[in-house]
Write a protein that binds this DNA or RNA. Sequence first.
RNA 1: AGGCGCGUAGCUCAGUUGGUUAGAGCGCUGCCUUGACAUGGCAGAGGUCGGCGGUUCGAAUCCGCCCGUGCCUACCA
Length: 925
Amino acid sequence: MDSSFDPHAIEQSLYSSWEAADYFAPAGNGPSYCVLIPPPNVTGTLHMGHAFNQTLMDTLIRYQRMKGSRTLWQMGTDHAGIATQMLVERQLNEQGIKRHDLGRSEFIERVWQWRAESGGTIEQQIRRMGSSLDWSRDRFTMDDDYARAVQQVFETLYDEGLIYRGQRLVNWDPQLGTAISDLEVENTDEQGHMWHFRYPLAEGLKTADGADYLTVATTRPETMLGDTAVAVHPDDPRYQGLVGGRVILPLANREIPIIADDYVDMEFGTGCVKITPAHDFNDNEVGQRHGLPLLNIFTTEARINTNAPEPYQGLSREEARRTVVADLDNAGLLERIEDHALKVPRGDRSGAIIEPLLTDQWFVKIAPLAEPAVAAVENGDIEFVPKQYENVYFAWMRNIQDWCISRQQWWGHQIPAYYDDQGNIYVAASEDAARQKYQLDDHVQLRRDEDVLETWFSSALWPFATLGWPDETADLDTYLPTDTLITGHDIIFFWVARMIMMTLHFTQRIPFKTVYIHGLVRDADGQKMSKTKGNGLDPLDFIDGVSLEDLLDKRTQSLTQPKMAERIAKTTRKDFPEGIPSYGTDALRFTFCALATTGRDVRFDLSRIESNRNFCNKLWNATKFVLINTEDLDLQAEMELSPIDRWMQSKCHTLINELEFALSTYRFDIFAARIHEFAWHEYCDWYVELSKPMLWDDNISPAVKNGIRHSLLEVLEALLRLAHPVMPFITETLWQQVAPRLQRQSDSIMVQAYPMATDYPLDEAAEAQIEWLKAVISAVRNIRGEADIKPKQSVKLLLQHGNAEDRERAAATESMLQRLAHVDTLEWLADDAEAPPHALALVGDLKVMVPLAGLIDIGAEIARLNKELDKVQQDLQRINAKLSNENFVGKAPAEVVAKEKEKAADLETRQVALQEQRAKLEKLA
RNA sequence: AGGCGCGUAGCUCAGUUGGUUAGAGCGCUGCCUUGACAUGGCAGAGGUCGGCGGUUCGAAUCCGCCCGUGCCUACCA
């Protein structure tokens, strides 16, 4: 074996061999265990969020597979309507081609081509993560079968009256030319202005203070062209006489009514609000209450349309704003302009400012679907981990608005609806089906709806559509409800909630039992990773490593704002002066697990993955040690387990229970931490080190040596299986070397059983003995360290005041004690004997003494004693204060009081011993 | 504005139902290339658990208020 671990040498070939052996497919007759993959965008690339998510899912899947479950984790990708269409359009634009030049079917053909070219990228990247996905069942949301499910769902919901078409104010993305849903709008904080305009009163009306105008304030001056009223609060004394009157809308020269509505806040601004029902959601509601006309003044490109006065027609929103303000100013109607912070709605894909626009769209009437979906979580059928996300879910679901599902795009599931010349709607899977279903004559001309369904509409069907629905399949019976959904909190509404609603409605079953929500991956400074900020990291760069040059290229290429390039380059050079070294998949996965604490966002810190790479190396070298020392192991020969073996196996027993508990509560961090602690600090630091003096001591019997060799292998072999779910590659590689020594052979560790605690006996006596030994060794090491005794310098060790057990333990472990504490002779002193000047440590009542003998400086030893004594005295003071408190003694449980008393007694004897020792040394000094 | 979090060692984070001396990793200090590993070993330093108040015999943990910070939802034109 090489002296250090090289992940490159093993990972890819191992993965191929697993995949070729079909280990990822469901197998066995155990209970089913199914995890749904959040389908990545088919043309996307792997980012840190995916890598995190994949790690957690695969850890659970591999664990369950080893536990004997019939596991299904099937691969799938999403067509990602808007994202993919944007991408392909951008590529075409670079070639100077516009989408509309190609036409719909040619464009869609190009998208499929692009999918064929790039769709394999993310699949290969996911393989690099070691994900044990069943690739043979790969599903794509645009597959024919999937499309059939989408059509059927749409048609059924329409027939049930849960999907309808209507003209409504929707969020319109003028850049993409499509409606989007509420969830796809991001409200960003931006600095803007508030313009105060005067609208002259008509018919000689006057306000209470005698003005012949009303002042309205707005952050969007251009929309005034579409005003159809001015609203005041019904109780506002300033405007009492005016309600029912009219103002003259400047520039447009229309008379519009003054209305009274509670919506107006009297305290804010002037208390007069311009009402634009066609371009503002609140104004729209006011308009409905008052029967106001809707005057749409925008085209779908957000330019002023012909409903506005001629001079403004054709202007963009921005141009119109400048012109309107200037014209009002010229007319003496601009009162003032204030700075104003506001939220600007932007499309999450395009970044364009969203325009509320009146259009015909398809909606899902969501309340009837939401009700059972809320109940399923309330009654505990579906459980969120961490629990607090249930409140997030409830809050949204109970206030849910109808869902706009149509998109004015080409890439996606085209809506299965047809119109005749009168505009009647026929919903069916195909034109023929529609004619049949609605008994239409052949001469009726049908035209298919041009729009497609939003991507999330099809993703909402993922739990059942991927298992064969609408057919009644065996997979549906076996795997639905699935077990655990693992996803980030950013898509609870987009995806999780909608899956629950759709799956309940169409299968009467919950989609999954548990929803584990993990945090978002942020950079080391806690910033969200984003392309525009240039702080994104590619998981594969951690696996394979990347040079600074390549990293700079990656981060500064194809930026939407090229001027950012310089800044990004600067921070990149600062954060990664030498690029990123290769850490391997196991280190990356282990790091993600270790960082997966309850639901909070994780900061990805280079030092963590580095230390976990080192951990892989530690495992590698521990295995090397064990292999070197077990070459001549004879499994048939006589064997006797010594205390260190029984101690180690006992520790292993506890470890297994802790790991099982950690995973059953989704504490991936505890899972990783316990493996790390056990492997490094129990197995390597103590067991391996304790085994050396035993194995290399000629006085130790062959049976005992045999036992140690056997046990070194047994525990290591168990550890590899225990760690396999989180670090699959290195554990497989090492296991293939270790297991044969125990005459266990298999093509893969991944199809081995997960270790059971009962196979590693608890042994309290052995644990006590070895903990004692560790304490004595640590005591001597502490003296040595503090006294600066060189490692090569051995010391004498004197023991005194021990009981029979101490003597037994010392005898049984002498060679180990000698080697690990670097002690040459060990001697017991009679209780009444006078010890030579020495440094003292206490293990219980046992005095552990290292003679000064010119090795130890008295002053230094006194300082060390004082440090120890300070600690003891502080503790003693605190405990005595407690014990002298009548309330404590009277009210605390008896066992707590007894414990404290015991502690106090122990501390007192320590105090006395240390004080005596200090006095002796002070005399010598 | 409302809701949900968070604030523990220099940094990133654990800390189950209140009850030994509040832990880990990284970083830091000193010593050490001893026959698995310097991607290593041994020893060590470092915390008034954001602040104030309350409940309790006892609070990092429970309650209230405040400060700081993050996210989500809604939004005053």
